[in-house]
């Protein structure tokens, strides 16, 4: 189709028309798409096949054990979920608050632009650096215990906060200005406008960004290693200062076990569990978001 429209402009500097190039480029683009999808499918299939026979009820409800047949994942699952909930509680108010300030209140001066630039850069900082920050700040300075639920949640929160802020800003920015003006025209204050007009319209977008960021958070390993989270935990966390392990950390630990059953069976079962839980959390969040979207 593109070639047809270009036929008229052969002489106008678009270069010669080439059917072959057109088809070749299309195939190239298709190949680029397929390489990603096929390797992902191969990976999932490979892991799923390895996990067969290992991923059973016992695996999900037992504590870890050096014998692969008795090894269980429960404390790591509970740990990951506890960390996730704390992260959501920390990042959502902070991220949305920062986004509202930057979009609605801050004047467009040098300082705002400087902050904006920094947030964008922070989103690209390697997670191990955040781990180091968490170790120094939360474990060292605030002394809330190495490897505790709180230390882990705060550290990973820092890591995903820039992503949450940026996506919340995008969502707030996409609310048409005319609606704000209409609200002001009705005599509403800034706070009333934000609460009644901006936030309800922006909320689905904000939640999408937060969900994606949480998805990244659940798979993070490096920051947890840096704050010395124990690789293996037995029992469930009984306070926010309890030591906590997480699914990726336990998987990493299993990968170093001497038995091949661990490397091919138990690790695969762990990976499948991690993926399933991640997808479940994401889809629950998406359902909640869609409900919200319909209501407003």
């Amino acid at each position: 189709m593109a070639a047809d429209t270009q036929e008229a402009s052969v002489d106008s500097g678009f270069g010669q028309i080439s059917r072959t190039k057109d088809v070749a480029f299309r195939l190239l683009a298709l190949a680029a798409t397929l390489i990603g999808i096929v390797s992902l499918a191969a990976l999932l299939l490979n892991v799923a096949v390895d996990a067969v026979g290992w991923l059973d009820w016992g695996f999900l409800t037992n504590p870890p054990h050096p014998n692969p047949n008795n090894a269980g994942f429960l404390p790591a699952i509970v740990g990951s979920i506890a960390i996730m909930i704390m992260i959501a509680l920390v990042t959502f108010p902070l991220g949305v608050g920062a986004a509202i300030y930057l979009e609605e209140y801050a004047s467009d001066g040098y300082l705002t632009r400087f902050i904006q630039l920094n947030i964008a850069n922070l989103a690209g900082v390697p997670s191990v650096v955040y781990g180091l920050l968490g170790l120094g700040l939360f474990v060292g300075l605030f002394n809330i215990g190495y490897g505790s639920v709180l230390a882990a949640a705060f550290t990973v929160s820092l890591l995903i906060l820039p992503i949450v802020i940026i996506s919340a800003q995008e969502a707030i920015r996409s609310v048409p200005d005319s609606q704000r003006q209409a609200s002001y025209g009705m005599g509403a204050t800034k706070w009333q406008t934000i609460r009644n007009v901006v936030l309800p319209r922006a909320m689905p977008g904000i939640m999408t960004g937060t969900i994606l960021a949480l998805g990244r958070a659940i798979g993070e390993t490096a920051p947890l290693i840096m704050i010395a989270a124990p690789t293996t935990v037995f029992g469930v966390p009984n306070s926010l200062l309890s030591k906590v392990s997480a699914m990726p950390l336990q998987i990493y630990n299993w990968a170093s076990y001497p038995q091949t059953e661990f490397q091919y069976g138990v690790v695969a079962a762990g990976v499948v569990t991690l993926l399933v839980i991640l997808l479940t959390i994401n889809s629950v969040a998406i359902i909640i978001r869609n409900r919200y979207q319909q209501r407003t």
Binding site: P63, P66, G147, V233, F234, K243
Partner: peptide, 24 residues
């Protein structure tokens, strides 16, 4: 580590409310 892990695992089955953490 594996010795302690095996013993902790057995301990945890009897005392599921105790939070035991183990690192290498």
């Amino acid at each position: 580590f594996p010795v302690t892990e095996a013993i902790a695992s057995a301990f945890s089955e009897k005392n599921p409310t105790v939070n035991l953490s183990l690192s290498k």
